[in-house]
Design a protein around this nucleic acid. Structure first.
Lengths: 120, 120
DNA sequence: ACAACCTACAACCATTTAGTTGTACGTTAG
DNA sequence: CTAACGTACAACTAAATGGTTGTAGGTTGT
């Protein structure tokens, strides 16, 4: 149903942790094994593994197996899709949105099925 | 210490909830009272109040009192600052960062104070 | 004055999150 | 073969999150 909103939730959530942002920077700069990444942070291997999993679920990172290693790399297209969500917010501010009602969802539960103009 | 990282944490976290993103869209389109906002969502007034507070702490929204109403409006500059964080990630991917070691923080705990080249 | 309205905030609850440790399993090097 | 390495995953804990209800205080209109 709200598929793109689910994706947005996952992406922003993935980016809301500094360790994950740091991991993303590294794997955007170049493929890195999980253990290589884990060595960079003052936490357990499993913790870093989980962070990578969060990034992967959000689509910001992809994994590729090479022998016994798992190589992670960042997906710049996913980063761009987040940027465009923010650009959309900026466009709303500019008032340059054609059909603003499409973006201003009455969201979960939708108490106003009929799109009332909602003026004062 | 990691002041800008704290801010980034707060901003991305604020954006990671669809209700908050929707609220942000509305207040970017124009000032809205909290109760007006609350009427739009299938949750209690207090819940919406908390969401606005999260957005406010992140600096994405500012509040102004007008009589008995509290008017919230979106700060587009804050949105732009998030965009530039993402642009920075994209720049890393392009490999066009001058001093990448500044961005690739050894983060919390910093186990490698001496910036080793870290080649294979 | 008084009722209705808007807001603030505390207390509580269920779920998720970020971290830990421990175990298990495939892979690589001697 | 065996030891060391890289990973996966389950189970657990503490803290944060998103929601609720209830109470209280300032503002507005009649």
């Amino acid at each position: 149903m709200s598929d793109s909103e689910d994706r947005a939730d996952a992406m922003f959530h993935a980016l809301s942790d500094r360790t994950r942002r740091d991991i993303l920077r590294r794997v955007l700069a170049g493929e890195q094994s999980i253990s290589r990444l884990a060595a960079s942070y003052p936490m357990s291997f499993a913790a870093v593994q989980k962070h990578v999993a969060v990034l992967e679920r959000a689509g910001l990172v992809t994994k590729r197996r090479s022998g016994r290693e798992q190589l992670a790399s960042g997906d710049v297209e996913a980063v761009r899709s987040v940027t465009s969500m923010l650009d959309e917010l900026e466009a709303i501010w500019r008032g340059r949105i054609d059909r603003i009602d499409v973006l201003l969802t009455e969201t979960p539960g939708d108490p106003s099925p009929t799109p009332q103009p909602q003026e004062d």
